[in-house]
Nucleic acid binder design. Structure first.
Lengths: 83, 83
DNA sequence: GGGGAAGATGATCGGAGGATCATATTGAAT
DNA sequence: ATTCAATATGATCCTCCGATCATCTTCCCC
């Protein structure tokens, strides 16, 4: 199931899910990415319009990458909302 | 052909390609996204570690979205470099 | 080669994020 | 319920982006 992000909030949720899937803590992810636990928390909570570089650092530490794709007409969530 | 981004430079190049594919100028994209031509130029050139919110604004204006996926072992470019 | 549109870039300013200290609060495990 | 780890958050400082003015350079077209 692909994770789609159109907002910082989406991105934060996705990052959190990915981190938990790997079974590591915010502090550990922060250490790997070279940022602060505070920053990871902020981003996961969607509180901040973070900097792109920071996001890429986190993605790399999680072995993730971005694919830029055309917007799908229907997202998984749309479907879930309907049915 | 999917566009993969692991760095701000990748992202800038992808955004520029997408914009040109739509045949619009930086100024027009900027207007649609509610930012400045200066900002679009900065991001496309990869000069700035832009803010995530700005990126999402541009993506929306280009009808694009992000998919967060596991890193592929081999990227398209890797293959091109080999063959 | 001349001309005009498109993109790059200089400078200043204000706002907001990340670094960095800290503590509070939540959540899970026993 | 107690406890300890994990996460959220307060406060300050500094840096850097985006906003906003501008001009300069590039490039394409005739």
């Amino acid at each position: 199931m692909d994770q789609i992000a159109r907002t910082t909030k989406d991105l934060g949720q996705t990052l959190r899910a990915a981190r938990k899937a790997k079974g590591i803590t915010q502090a550990e992810l922060a250490a790997r990415a070279g940022v602060w636990q505070r920053t990871v928390s902020n981003i996961e909570t969607g509180a901040s319009g973070a900097k792109v570089d920071t996001i890429f650092d986190l993605l790399a530490a999680l072995d993730l990458e971005l694919r830029i794709v055309p917007r799908s007409k229907m997202t998984q969530r749309d479907l879930e909302d309907i049915f």
